[in-house]
Structures are given as C-alpha cells and as structure tokens.
C-alpha cells in the first residue's frame, strides 16, 4: 500500500563516507551483479555490445570537483548515489497501484513488480534519480538494500549486508539501523556530522553522507629561494660564452657578477 507507515521499527540504511571513497565503482558492479541474479527482474542492458550501450543500475558513482571558498586546494570527491530510503518518501505516496511501498518493519522502500505499471511517476517524484525504469522488463527498479542478503540465513553471517557494502575495498560504505542510537552507523553519523542530501526537498533521507575531512594546510611560510652560487662561467663553457657573444649578432650580455 502506498500509505506511509506512521513509524518503522527499524530504519535500515547506509552511511557513505565521502572522505574515503576512492571512486572505484566496485559497489556499482557488485550491486549490478547481485541484483541481476536475485530479487525481481534482472537489471537489463540494452545494446550491450553495440555502439550505444545503456543499462539499468541501482547505484552510480559521480565525481565532483570542490573548490574551497578560502582559495585552498580543490578536492576531487567521488560520490556514490543510490536510494536513500527516505522517511518521507514521495515515491511511495504517488504510486497509483500500491507497487511502491515502505516496509513498516525496517523502513526499506521496495517495488512490488507484480503490481508496477511502469508509469514512471515515482521516478519523477524522486529528487535523487534513484529509480530507473528497466527498459526490458518495463518495471521500476531501485535499491532493495539487498533485502535478499541481509536476512538470508543461507549466507555466511559476514555476507548478510548489502553487496555494495560487502565489496567496498576502502570501507567507505556502512550498513546498519539508524533507529538505534547505539548502532555503529548512528555513532559514525554523530561523530562525523552526517548530512542529508537536498534537505530542502523535505524527504528526510535515512542514508547519510559523511563530508570529507578538511585537507592539511601548510602551517609555515615556504623556505626562501636558493641564491645563485655560480657567479661566472669558467673553463670551456666560459670561453664558449664569450666566443659566441663576440660573433656578429651576438649580445654583450651582462655577466652573472654584474647581475648580482
């Protein structure tokens, strides 16, 4: 049903650390791999080996350049973006069929593909571009928070987290329950000052982004420039210098000594 649950017992979501993400796109690939073989219709590729390939992805990594206002060194920041499982998710309430829903038990926003008509209104209502209509299956695809991994007792315990988190080589992605103030993700967000994306949209995203830590700055004046030690060319080079200057068109340049 597209009515939002009043509260959710858990608020499962991700923390994405923009300080440590190296932009390897490993999470993108792991997500595509897992979600093509599991929950719902596979994530299709269109014209995969042709001139104009495109496909459905639930997670994509942008890279931004940020120039600090104080004129400090610019930073390159890799920016993974997927569904934020918003507490006030507009994509749920706009759905005419009840296919789009937020689970009361853990807050995960899912699409029931057996009800989806592929109208695309939920994707229009999402500020984050988190939903993509699969061009092959004609149903809306989105991050499931790997709902088929996190509760899956057939998997070893360490694998019971979203594929993107499990695969991240720089530990930039964390999974947990934000409703529990003592969870690792809640503590991380409190400690590092987690931020909402586009807070002015009023969606109250569950996923949090950790801003990059400030870069080191030079705290002392740079060393003075080296003084010239060779005052005058000697030996063969000295002779060559004088001989070339003496040729027609040559300049009588000041010697290094005169320059000093």
């Amino acid at each position: 049903m597209t009515k939002m649950p009043a509260t959710t017992a858990k608020k499962l979501g991700l923390v994405i650390d923009l300080d440590t993400c190296v932009g390897c796109h490993g999470c993108v690939t792991a997500c595509k791999g897992w979600n093509t073989q599991n929950y719902g219709a596979p994530l299709s590729d269109i014209d995969a080996y042709g001139a104009d390939p495109e496909g459905t992805f639930l997670n994509r990594v942008f890279s931004y350049n940020v120039q600090p206002d104080d004129g400090g060194a610019a930073q390159t920041i890799h920016f993974p973006k997927s569904c934020l499982h918003c507490e006030d998710a507009p994509c749920v309430t706009v759905c005419p069929t009840g296919a789009s829903y937020k689970r009361a038990e853990d807050g995960i926003v899912l699409v029931n593909e057996d009800r989806c008509i592929g109208c695309g209104l939920c994707a229009w209502s999402c500020p984050y571009g988190a939903r993509e209509l699969d061009q092959d299956a004609g149903v809306m695809k989105k991050c499931t928070l790997c709902v088929d991994r996190i509760y899956n007792e057939n998997l070893p315990e360490e694998d019971r987290e979203p594929a993107c988190v499990r695969t991240c080589p720089s530990n930039a992605r964390h999974f947990g329950d934000f409703a529990d103030p003592d969870s690792a993700v809640s503590k991380l967000v409190a400690e590092r000052g987690g931020i909402d994306l586009m807070p002015e949209q009023g969606t109250r995203p569950v996923n949090q982004y950790l801003p990059p830590r400030p870069k080191d700055t030079l705290d002392k004046t740079p060393p003075p420039q080296l003084q010239t030690v060779a005052t005058e060319a000697k030996g063969f080079l000295g002779w060559l210098d004088k001989a070339l200057d003496a040729l027609p068109g040559g300049e009588k340049t000041e010697t290094a000594k005169e320059r000093l």
């Binding site: 923009l18 104009d52 390939p53 495109e54 496909g55 459905t56 992805f57 994509r60 990594v61 942008f62 890279s63 931004y64 350049n65 940020v66 120039q67 600090p68 206002d69 104080d70 610019a74 930073q75 390159t76 920041i77 920016f79 973006k81 695309g120 994707a123 229009w124 500020p127 571009g129 993509e132 209509l133 061009q135 931020i195 909402d196 994306l197 586009m198 807070p199 002015e200 982004y209 801003p211 990059p212």
Partner: peptide, 30 residues
Amino acid sequence: KGTATGLDRIGTVTTFESAHTARNYILDEM
C-alpha cells in the same frame, strides 16, 4: 549542486566526471 551533494559546506561544486558515459532512463526522462 551544492545542496544536492551536501558539498556546499566546503566550497563551489563542479562536475569532474559523470557517473556514466552512456545515456540512461534518468537522462532521457528528466
């Protein structure tokens, strides 16, 4: 772009590289 990424608290945000080279549903539609 600053509020969309939350990076406005550091400075001026510009795109360094898009997430994908091909077009996708989001670009086609929105």
